[in-house]
Write a protein that binds this DNA or RNA. Structure first.
Lengths: 133, 133
DNA sequence: CTGGATCCGCTTGGATACTG
DNA sequence: CAGTATCCAAGCGGATCCAG
């Protein structure tokens, strides 16, 4: 990551602008686990081990990394309760919850066209399969 | 790719459902170049070399690969004009254009909170910088 | 012009052991 | 419990050469 994410030169409406902002957000939540964590943390404060169980398939390392990044971007709040054993809770910020709202649009698209995409993919693969055999 | 993308077991409203559909679409367009290509192809039919110039930074290999995948998922239409030299045009399908509409919601989120995220990141980095030095 | 095939470095990410 | 540190494998992606 050699580039700071300050204000881009605002390439305006050439399509490049939309591309950049789109990539900006996708780089942030396009990770394999970000969405799942944001959704969980939007429902209630969650603890580390809790996420390790809930977000099925995630490794301890990736959980820690993703949490760090989300916290860094101000999407998660990390609260340490100085008890023993230590208790750390992660909560989605208002920004993150708004992000989730925005994502609903995308899931809507996925649900509407899931069948069509699957069909297209199958058709494509069948064509290729014929060519190769 | 060892897993077919058929109908998931529909885990309903436990948050897992949204996570899955969200990941489904992000896996499809979360690639480094998919969005840029979709946007370009939504504006007009585009040729291979044209994209190579427009989508700045993309390599020939990744352009070809991304085009294949998008075509496979029914998001792009590939039209070959049997001329010499060959002329191939890619066009966004209706589904892809709807996807772009959905993405606008996301870019809206990015634009609204860009400053906040940048600030959070800077604050976080400054805190860490102090600790490490 | 439009790609496919190959080589290879770099990053991503899993498994595990260790620390406070 | 809540992580960090280390090792290592798989795959993403760039560069290049070649073909239709």
């Amino acid at each position: 990551m050699s580039q700071r994410h300050g204000e881009p030169p605002s390439p305006a409406s050439s399509g490049i602008g939309h591309t950049c902002t789109a990539r900006e957000v996708l780089d942030r939540v396009g990770g394999k686990w970000s969405i799942a964590i944001i959704i969980e943390a939007s429902r209630r404060p969650v603890r580390f081990t809790e996420l390790e169980r809930t977000v099925e398939g995630i490794s301890r390392r990736m959980l820690a990394l993703t949490l760090r990044n989300l916290e860094r971007d101000g999407l998660l709040t990390r609260t340490v309760h100085p008890t023993v054993p230590p208790r750390v809770e992660y909560t989605a910020t208002e920004i993150a919850r708004e992000l989730y709202e925005a994502l609903v649009t995308l899931t809507g698209w996925a649900e509407r066209h899931r069948a069509a995409v699957a069909a297209a993919r199958e058709a494509y693969d069948r064509r290729q399969g014929d060519r190769r055999c």
